[in-house]
Design a protein around this nucleic acid. Sequence first.
DNA 1: TAAATAAATTAGATAGCCCTAATTTAATTC
DNA 2: GAATTAAATTAGGGCTATCTAATTTATTTA
Lengths: 217, 217
Amino acid sequence: MHSLTEENYLKAIYRLSQKGLDKITPTALAEEMSINAASVVDMIRKLSDKKLINYDKQKGAKLTAQGNKIALDIVRKHRLWEVFLLEKLGYSWDVVHEIAEQLEHIKHEELADRLDKFLGYPEYDPHGDPIPNAKGEIPSIANTLLSEIEVGKTCQVTAVKDTSAVFLQYLEQLSIKIGTKIKVLEKIPFDASMAVQIEKDVKTTVSKKFAESLFVS
Amino acid sequence: MHSLTEENYLKAIYRLSQKGLDKITPTALAEEMSINAASVVDMIRKLSDKKLINYDKQKGAKLTAQGNKIALDIVRKHRLWEVFLLEKLGYSWDVVHEIAEQLEHIKHEELADRLDKFLGYPEYDPHGDPIPNAKGEIPSIANTLLSEIEVGKTCQVTAVKDTSAVFLQYLEQLSIKIGTKIKVLEKIPFDASMAVQIEKDVKTTVSKKFAESLFVS
DNA sequence: TAAATAAATTAGATAGCCCTAATTTAATTC
DNA sequence: GAATTAAATTAGGGCTATCTAATTTATTTA
Ligand SMILES: [Mn+2]
Ligand SMILES: [Mn+2]
Ligand SMILES: [Mn+2]
Ligand SMILES: [Mn+2]
């Protein structure tokens, strides 16, 4: 059996590889997990011994089929619990993550599937991230950023790239949620900020950082 | 902050004091938690230092007001999660306990209250145990055993004293659940077993051990 | 390429929670 | 009351996951 800590490492490796990192180094993992690189090296050895990852100084760390299965299962549970917390318990989307971080480690054979059924087989979590199904298949992922949309075009929010509480609260304040329509009115060359119109009413200007933190389609 | 392990100790002390033990000794706790007495002594010191219990060689271990509050909170969460697992996820009453044993340690300020509301403020868990409310008040507890019911009388199951999976599965097999009516037909002096009638139909004989494992009213 | 910097690894510790074995203290029993 | 048995405690470790400080190995940069 694998520990909560091992699960968190596997999930972090999964996350980094999803991010498109070519090489997952101890330093990158240490940064990602806010942990010391020396500790990471220890755990890399442990996970390698357990055949959950392959580690190679040249290629970095890679999940094995087995490791990937575990990581995907944790991600599935994490996102399902987030849906539960938001839809059933009425939590807001800037708090569900930290609680799901604990809930994802609850172990019981049928738990994910039962939760999935109870929630009506949701495809995306509250932040727009895709939920792997029971077979480990993942719905397609958004990859266009708001910053890439041309002036005059209207797009629709599909997911948040940055899931920090501060950003989510700011979105809340602007009444932006998954599905919200945003029209790009102007791009300011000076600092790459954007003038946008949110749904019908509100016009505002958002920063480059902001425009690079929202996925749209 | 207190750890998962500390919470389990506090809960065990709470459980033993509810059982009416006059003196909670290291040995009793060790037995209750399937742990070595030497380990218990370590933790008793730790919990004493944290003022969560008072320990006295003469009087044994006693929860302080603060310790009691934590224990009660864990018990509340445990029982609420059991209701959730049974009613919302469709688990049977012989499995909910082990999963709730993990879920009870999920930490978030409003979690218990939100769950409570979502479940419709249940008063009892699937085994008939009372659920402390937000103020820490506990509904009255069943204390009459089936074995104490006189011949000819009919009673109703209010709770199970033994919550082991084997017992719960046996009850399932006999179609006995919380609320089931049982009539005592005969008491056999030889081994203190009892002939009973379950609801209208089924007549069967149950052992002394069985009759002392069911609470009725 | 040699020097400087950065990354990876090793060495050595610590904290939490558990164990076995030995010892001390208390409770029984003869 | 002395001997025996049981309970509580101490001593000494083990394992996991973390850290800091040193060292080794790679990568940059001048
Ligand atoms: Mn999340
Ligand atoms: Mn986690
Ligand atoms: Mn239970
Ligand atoms: Mn527990």
